[in-house]
Design a protein around this nucleic acid. Structure first.
Lengths: 344, 344
DNA sequence: TCCTCTATTGAAAGCGGTTTCAAAACGGCT
DNA sequence: AGCCGTTTTGAAACCGCTTTCAATAGAGGA
């Protein structure tokens, strides 16, 4: 292995100055096509990669972005949502030739320390953060630091904040509407008040009821924190109300609800129908497979990176970029529709 | 906002040279206590934070490590193993004050490109890689680049390579032994030949059979690729052999096996017992909850980071650090033991 | 008192890029 | 041929910190 390649080695090989190599590297003008090609060739042949650190020191740009996941759970990745998101962002970063750093912060108030560390390091061009009611407190700090950032999910106070979100209100609506269409009247829901996604899904549930003239019954609403256990408890609390159907706000929570139902001797969908939200692997793997609202996580992640890349590029030259992606219902067995068709 | 503080401003204020400030900053010796205190005071009062980037550039150390996950699947994180590992490594990195970058490379031969980019960037102090029979090909490249690296899982050719692995052979052994103890004789297995972990688990299965004098029957062994679907197919292939019990080499694969069994009208554990491997969330969430070999993923990740930190520190001054962590059996319902106890 | 040795200290040389600025080269005009 | 205005190009400064190395100061010994 040859010794480390520096911009000087390339300059020597191509018989130009460091400055010219730098120009080629950054696509700046004022380089004769012929020279540009000669330099490019050397770069290609040697596989030279500029040193990011040095580049950053000189230009204040690192090509490194951070993904900050803050969650209440002890084990963040027990919810496949974060896994899927992380993977999507990772792909997006690669596609945009950005290096991705991962930070996972937990409930115990480590969040601010983590973030302080990130900001103090001065290493990052931008940040992607997951939104929950806790994490939203970071926004002033981020603003003060002047670092570009994009939220995945809408923060509580979204004014002037760039974010990419799924249409959770629509999700709650179509899930509930589907159950209502199938003739159920006592439709319960297990929601979450951890983030706006949870709020929105419940709001969608509510509007679907309203549309068909059904009252919003507080006793048919229970809350969980996206964990299986919390939904298990929520479902048990709901059982005495004898719901005919339930819209559960996430696939992981549906697993908990299913367990509570199974223990109570209720069959899904024969005794009670269930529609879930997210369409992550557990939705397919569950027994029965879940009818669920599909959230475009891959696109969300990709778009978050692209949005970030954009605001890093032309810094602050425009308003808040806020995207809401559509969702759609995937019908499987837990709502009873498949059976209905099969038994025709 | 005052103008940016640099080491020079501190030096001026404390009436010493930059070098002395640097010594104080890094806790180096050869500074009079009196001077050290004077400098510290200025630093404290001004709230000066050294610029990490400059520091990195000068010291040729970035404190950034990479986690390189290469997998065959289109969606790596559909296997919660990688999620759990990523989380563990993330925690470990934070604990060691290292910044973690994540790289996910897919089957289509992107692996080498990804790795080339990583190595050429010169940004990383070290790498943690997951081992599969494909990824092992990276070793020569890594060696040539002279970058410290640690494998999670034992590579096929582990000579001189640092790695942290679980005792998969023991895992296969205790899983199978448990089934044999419960009186089953026709014990099948769904293994994998994607990595040494798969090989080892099958080897453990084999040795458990051997110990009780049972022959190794090729027809009772089927292979999957750690995906649910592959295990579903493997289980279906196994069914005509009418096994009384089966040891499945991962929780995700167990989900596939369960599906095949359910479709065949077989109840678990009444008609066929199952022991799984990994003890990831799906093991608890499955119906029935899986008896499974618990793999210490959190410790594996933490240890991988610590090992890496160590070899980054005293570079190459010792032999290969190879750790094999113990595993243990977690008894739930799928093996029938819980029932047995309950029915006493 | 003078000399040697060691603990402190500062000047300056990097680290590997970017960016500024002046010089060189070139083409078109008069 | 002599000028002028563009492009191109390279030399050198600079980003903020670490590290080397020589200089200085102070202590101890002869």
């Amino acid at each position: 292995m040859s010794s480390k390649l520096t911009i000087q080695s390339i300059a020597d090989l191509a018989q130009v100055s460091k400055a010219t190599v730098s120009r080629v590297l950054n696509g700046y003008p004022h380089v004769r096509p012929e020279v540009r090609e000669r330099v490019s060739k050397v770069i290609r042949e040697t596989g030279y990669q500029p040193n990011n650190i040095a580049r950053l020191l000189a230009s204040e740009r690192s090509s490194i972005i951070g993904l900050v996941i803050s969650a209440g759970a002890r084990m963040v990745f027990s919810d496949p949502y974060f896994s899927a998101l992380t993977e999507a962002v990772s792909k997006g970063a690669a596609a945009n030739r950005l290096i991705l750093s991962l930070f996972v912060s937990y409930a115990e108030g480590q969040g601010h320390d983590t973030l302080n560390g990130i900001l103090a390091s001065g290493l990052f061009d931008g940040l992607i953060l997951t939104a929950d009611h806790r994490g939203d407190a970071f926004i002033p700090q981020l603003r003060a630091a002047g670092i570009p950032f994009v939220f995945v999910g809408r923060p509580s106070d979204a004014a002037g904040v760039h974010y990419v979100d799924a249409d959770n209100r629509l999700g709650g609506y179509i899930a509930t509407a589907h159950l209502l269409e199938r003739g159920f009247r006592r439709v319960a829901t297990i929601g979450s008040d951890q983030n706006t996604a949870g709020d929105d899904r419940v709001a969608g549930y509510r509007s679907a009821l309203q549309e068909v003239g059904l009252p919003f019954d507080r006793d048919l609403v229970a809350y969980g924190d996206y964990s299986l256990e919390s939904a298990y408890n929520a479902m048990r609390a709901l059982l005495p109300r004898e719901p005919e159907a339930v819209f559960v706000g996430s696939d992981t929570m549906s697993l908990g609800a299913l367990r509570a139902l199974r223990e109570a001797g209720l069959r899904v969908p024969q005794d009670i129908a269930l529609v879930s939200h997210d369409d992550l692997p557990p939705a397919v793997q569950a027994d029965p497979p879940l009818t669920t609202v599909q959230q475009p996580i891959a696109r969300t992640g990709a778009l978050a990176v692209e949005t970030l890349a954009q605001i890093i590029g032309d810094c602050g030259g425009f308003g808040a970029l806020q995207t809401v992606l559509p969702v759609q219902l995937v019908i499987r067995e837990s709502c009873g529709a498949a059976q209905a068709i099969g038994s025709r």
